[in-house]
Design a protein around this nucleic acid. Structure first.
Lengths: 202, 202, 202, 202
DNA sequence: CATGAATGAGAATTCATTCAT
DNA sequence: TATGAATGAATTCTCATTCAT
């Protein structure tokens, strides 16, 4: 009996943790880090303020975990594309398009984890996340250069520029509103074209 | 009876105002809008908290003025390049290089005026600033397309991507520290190359 | 899962709210609106500053509620007298005496809700309160005039004068200290006599 | 030469002092004590903030002096009426009418010196002023009782009620705006009638 | 373990008063 | 003496974190 109850509880705890992370992501994607108060997160997660602190030691750690969870998923998808078939320009284009497409559909953290300084702890996580994105693109670029599909270049800078380019395209002229399907496709194409050409793709 | 404000005082006031704006820019460029508290700005400017309110009606207006002052200078320089001689790719490259170069030398607000939500007032200014930068690049792109120096493209998206690319290149792999001269030149070249190639330049 | 707020807690919250309102009334009745700082109210209520904002959204609303709560009670009592039996002069005298009597016993807000400009919000409430008092007396006067118990007169002015007369009698020669029982009775009689005679009563 | 300059200066100083007092009265009569900031007074007087402190050691003392100056004039006028010819009810009515009339014409301090708590210093002055007004009315009442023109009564209370009545009539239903001439006359008559009847006049 | 009321350290802003010019 | 810029204490309000129930 002790076992079963424990298992049940275990599940519930995990579910709560997930709900908190989801609520955090949701709130950040709407109003930025600034608007994501602990109270608001708790309410959105259907829990009490105090409960948050059972799952996360501080607001900063909660944010860090939320950012990293979101980036985990994103990077996993991008890595599959990066390691998949096709030429480097093709894979680069696909990765960019994939990211932009997803960002345009649902609530995304592009706002928050790219450039938005906060407390030191969160900021460190933000930088780590940015670099992880960069790594994916760097791996594509390196393979392309090695195979002669792309000209030689400073992959650190190119990767950073790519990340910056599509982020700005997302949060900049478009804003948080979801554009029409046709607009979306055109935007994705434009960004993809920009990034592929930038690194010397055809 | 009427008291004529002495030239000396006039100067000192102007100097104070400038010092406040400088301090604000300095603080923002280091820790973002969040860290730039009125107290901190005052201290950095060598004044008391209350004095700030003699020069600016509110923290929000101070920030707006600081952002716009910085952007005024920046945009003026970029516009001169945009309207100058040379092909569109050349001018684009020169503009990008010029911006990155300056940003790498002194404290820059790239952090703040690109993406960092805050109060509504400041945010509105931030968006205006971003658009002003975008406009400069759009004008270059349009002229290039008209003259056949650049392929047809969505100039809105391209301009946003350019702004995002060099901003990220600045805050991303490099951070606030000023790199060595050689590194700096290499970085500038890489970013320029990225942006020019991205829009279809040679 | 849903947490039912316990009856005990419910009670405590209500008690706290009441304590805050009481503390506010107490402080206002001593030092006027000016001295009733949020800190002071909190301390007098045995709570922290922040706690006040759990019960009232702003200092202004707290004041408005405190004023209106006090006036609600007062006006209810006066209305019962106004609508009760007896001639108009009798009822007027009874109403005045009743108000003065109560004011002399406990902390009274006479100071605050009669004349003391503050923020717009609070001021609006103050004016409303004053008018509500006036209305009670006007109703008595009108009925008296209709029945021929009182001579015709400008009831607006008379009501204002009545309110002013007993308010001043309260805050003026006496001040906040509670006088002896005999003095109190004499004061009440004098004020009552003054007001009844003023409007043409016997 | 030293003499002449001194006399000139003397005059100018006195004129400035008067201007400051006037400005203070003006501001208080408009927005109450709260709105009369030292800066505002200085500007209204055509002087600098610092200059105020040459003439008055503190804001509190400035206010006290302004109140007392205003009351000096007022009381002098009322005393002349009180000591003049006519029966007590006549003189009482004339005094009340005179005060109300003047208050309705120009900026008046009725707001401030009757009921409006502030700092302790100013408050003490306020109470003194109130009592001085009371004294005038008490002297009328006493003479009326002595001569058999008025019934015996508690002159302290009656005087306070009179002051309260006309004050409230002034600041209450009418407010700071100057009413039409006809309205004004009617108001004066009503208040006079109220006060005279209140103390047992015909 | 969950709750949400309470805490209290900030942060922005105001304004009486001072003091270098 | 006059000026008005500068000061800084005081005040309102916010929000991450704690803790009794």
């Amino acid at each position: 009996m002790a076992y079963r109850r424990s298992a049940l509880m275990e599940e519930r705890l995990a579910a709560n943790r997930e709900r908190i992370l989801d609520a955090t992501r949701e709130l950040i994607s709407r109003g930025g880090l600034r608007e994501a108060r602990v109270d608001a997160v708790a309410q959105a997660a259907g829990l009490s303020t105090g409960a948050i602190y059972r799952y996360f030691p501080s607001k900063a750690e909660l944010f860090v975990d939320a950012l990293e969870a979101a980036v985990d998923r994103e990077v996993a998808i991008l890595e599959r594309i990066a390691e998949g078939p096709g030429s480097a320009p093709e894979r680069l284009g696909a990765a960019v398009a994939s990211f932009v497409d997803r960002a345009l559909r649902g609530p995304n953290l592009a706002y928050a984890f790219i450039v938005e300084p906060t407390e030191a702890d969160v900021d460190a996580a933000r930088i780590r996340c940015r670099m992880r994105f960069g790594e994916v693109f760097k791996s594509i670029l390196r393979s392309g250069i090695a195979r002669g599909e792309l000209p030689d270049q400073d992959v650190d800078v190119s990767a950073a520029c790519i990340v910056g380019a599509f982020t700005e395209a997302l949060v900049g002229p478009i804003g948080p509103s979801t554009p029409e399907r046709a607009d979306r496709d055109r935007l994705i194409d434009s960004v993809r074209g920009f990034c592929v050409a930038a690194v010397g793709g055809p």
